[in-house]
Design a binder for these strands. Structure first.
Length: 285
DNA sequence: GTTATCGGCCGGACGGGTTA
DNA sequence: TAACCCGTCCGGCCGATAAC
């Protein structure tokens, strides 16, 4: 099919998407949003809410291709590959906080055998996070309900959506790059040892204290075969949600940011050491 | 100091789709 | 058709805090 544009229904302008997604901001449940009745015409499976968005909101056909969900037309006439992510929030007890992220967001595999030779800017990981469109919903437990069965997902209300272009935010991208490099370097080092297979399982444990925005799960295991995957930490997912939810309706309000630019825990520790030194000298003075 | 309770996080199970 | 891949979901552990 090279040379031909295969038929796809995933091409949109940003304005088209915003128009179609208005329905997500009107306090509707997914059952109400589900015009195509995906809930009852499709075998209950994980990711059913994503299917409702794709089919009932965007009018796409069911597809599970291993490629970006959406292509969004830019001002420059080019299309921008964008990942659609549907993620849940739950009621929060934290002060001044109605909802909080429910879970970390899994992204893509830590491909051992590939990541070693990748450049960050061309990596699978980068391409997943560069441009995303997040849809939020309330994971609405009934009294005493720990887990909500799939059959009840249709009563979950949509809470809106947010475009997230990490690729366009250099400071944020630097932090993700740092996390990714720690992962890559660990795998490279493991490969150089006598028993790489014994070191792969220790990946996350070994570097988690230095990871800023991502974590890695599950642990590498040969049998039954388990391959580790990058995830956005729950705390990161929550930050993005709060940023959206707090500025919803009102004029945009940025969350407080550190006055200095810190991109890794190493840098943070250095800064703290500087400050400690500074204050110690002041006190001795 | 010791035990009970809670909540967050780690990491692995599940299961559908894809690939060899 | 079996192994593999990957996104979602969730059990259970562990550390913090409360209660004794």
């Amino acid at each position: 099919m090279e040379g031909y544009m295969e038929f796809h229904d995933k091409y949109f302008t940003k304005e088209e998407l915003e128009k179609k997604f208005e329905i997500l901001e009107r306090d509707k449940t997914f059952g109400e949003i589900d015009a195509k009745d995906v809930f009852h015409k499709q075998t209950p499976a994980k990711g059913i809410l994503g299917c409702v968005i794709e089919q009932s909101v965007l009018g796409m056909k069911q597809n599970s291709l291993q490629e970006a969900d959406l292509e969004i037309l830019q001002k420059n006439g080019k299309y921008k590959a964008t990942e659609l992510k549907v993620t849940g929030v739950q009621p929060s007890n934290k002060e001044g906080c109605k909802y909080e992220a429910k879970e970390p967001m899994s992204l893509t595999a830590v491909s051992i055998g590939t990541i070693e030779t990748e450049e960050f800017i061309e990596s699978h990981f980068y391409n997943k996070i560069a441009h995303m469109l997040w849809v939020f919903y309330l994971y609405d437990r009934k009294q005493g309900q720990k887990v909500v069965p799939y059959s009840e997902y249709e009563r979950f209300p949509a809470l809106g959506y947010k475009f997230l272009d990490i690729a366009d935010d250099e400071a944020e991208l630097t932090k993700f790059k740092n996390d990714w490099l720690l992962t890559q370097q660990y795998i490279i080092a493991a490969n150089k040892s006598d028993k790489p297979e014994e070191l792969y399982p220790l990946l996350h444990t070994s570097i988690k204290d230095r990871l800023f925005y991502i974590d890695i799960a599950p642990r590498y295991k040969v049998f039954p075969k388990q391959t580790p995957r990058f995830r956005l930490k729950k705390s990161y997912v929550d930050t993005i949600f709060q940023e959206y939810f707090n500025s919803k309706g009102k004029k945009k309000k940025q969350l407080e940011k550190l006055p200095i630019d810190i991109n890794s825990f190493d840098e943070l520790e250095n800064k703290l050491r500087e400050l400690t030194f500074l204050y110690k000298n002041l006190l001795n003075f």
